[in-house]
Write a protein that binds this DNA or RNA. Sequence first.
DNA 1: GAAGGCCTCACCCAAACGGGTGAAATTGAC
DNA 2: GTCAATTTCACCCGTTTGGGTGAGGCCTTC
Lengths: 137, 137
Amino acid sequence: MKKTVLLYGFILALVLIGLKTIEYKWLVRDLGQHLYVFLVAVLFMLLGIWFSYHLLTKKHAPQADTNEAAIKALGLSNRELEILNKLAEGLTNQQIAEVSFVSINTVKTHLKNAFMKLEVNNRTEAVNKLRQLNIIR
Amino acid sequence: MKKTVLLYGFILALVLIGLKTIEYKWLVRDLGQHLYVFLVAVLFMLLGIWFSYHLLTKKHAPQADTNEAAIKALGLSNRELEILNKLAEGLTNQQIAEVSFVSINTVKTHLKNAFMKLEVNNRTEAVNKLRQLNIIR
DNA sequence: GAAGGCCTCACCCAAACGGGTGAAATTGAC
DNA sequence: GTCAATTTCACCCGTTTGGGTGAGGCCTTC
């Protein structure tokens, strides 16, 4: 992030240098001050658009982090999270048991505990809550 | 998010001020015009940021349109969509029946047909598919 | 008016789910 | 070494869900 800010600052400096060059070598004398100001305005507006575009598009893709804070606040264990992730994919308890190499009873126990911690009553609510808390997807 | 954009805008402004200060110390000349151009630049850059922020945040949140094309391609009826939306909120069949003023059997029929059209086998899969198709949320 | 889609409802059945209790083995922390 | 948490599994119970068949009423299109 620090690198990003530095990059923008650097680009800004380049733009300023370019403007200075234009100002002193061509435009001011030949075309007048108004056009110069206009160019500055356009240039910086484009810069602003480009700038916030890059910022926003980067901010909109932080799905990798799996909100650790919320997980700890809820007290969800690792195994419970694994099971919940498979649940969110739409697997049945039996399928979860198979891919996790445990019995279906174990899956049910984990889900019972997880539902209690999440304060939900069924899997759809659970998925909604996890999504809302940015724990999945 | 807005706060973040403002923060970076502020940082950029600071960078600009710093650059300008440096410029004034070394290249002091027509002070009035420089200040004017500087203000124009800042103003239009902020304008650009504001502009694209509003554009992008609207583009990134198109949850209102409920992908009509996908709905038609799947052949989902209005009633089926209503029921599916309530399902996605985590309601049970019984609860959906109550808020929709129909019997639970009707809810089940709609869901059976909807599941067939969506090619899914349970509600979690259905919610995933609807989300993936941008039909809900 | 026949055909097809939509909405409604009923009945049945098997599977899945949710919730409760209990308990053993393992692990990590104190 | 003890305590707490985690992970594993079992059994039971009632409810929910998914899926199948059938059917009546309504509306639009042909």
